[in-house]
Design a protein around this nucleic acid. Sequence first.
DNA 1: CTCGGGATGCGT
DNA 2: CGCATCCCGAGG
Length: 189
Amino acid sequence: MRLCYTPTMRKLAREFYDRDTQVVARELLGKLLVHGDRVGRIVETEAYLGPHDLAAHSARGLTKRNAPMFGPPGFAYVYMIYGMYFCMNVVTEREGHASAVLLRALEPIGEIDGKTNGPGLLCNAMGIDRQLNGHDLLSEDFFIAEGAASGDAAYKIVKRPRIGVDYAKHWARRHLRFYIADNQFVSRR
DNA sequence: CTCGGGATGCGT
DNA sequence: CGCATCCCGAGG
């Protein structure tokens, strides 16, 4: 698989992910998700805070599916939803904290085949499936990087309730969804 | 072993 | 709003 790793693309370190999940969710905006030669700029995320967060998969304890959430930060948690899509998370905070950030939308960079304005669509377009569940995001073929050397461009971050978690009682109302304002690739606009 | 429903997306 | 389509996770 051809790699897309240039000097202007600095891979995020383990320490980036080993921080407060809401901070990671906000700071992932504008970063580049890289899988082989496919690259997309993250424009929408959601924070899932741990077992106390009733919307998180870790809310009912450790299971075979959610095991990566309980592992160390900087690994991928990929799962199938509705029998036809995959969703990708990055694990955050210390091992055992069981928190993660869901990647909800990307802005395509270069040649990407398919839509990227939703968690299932972006996994399709980036070629992300169950084989990448538990994959280290400090690896050579699948990682997240800073953008161009110019650094973060100025943009406004919008905070809203998470999508599709109405079952989570008061947790459904918390503003744990983050996206870049006015970006055309954000889902459900 | 059943069985209900889901961090979705698309068409009506 | 209905529905595709599969697997998880809870319960018997």
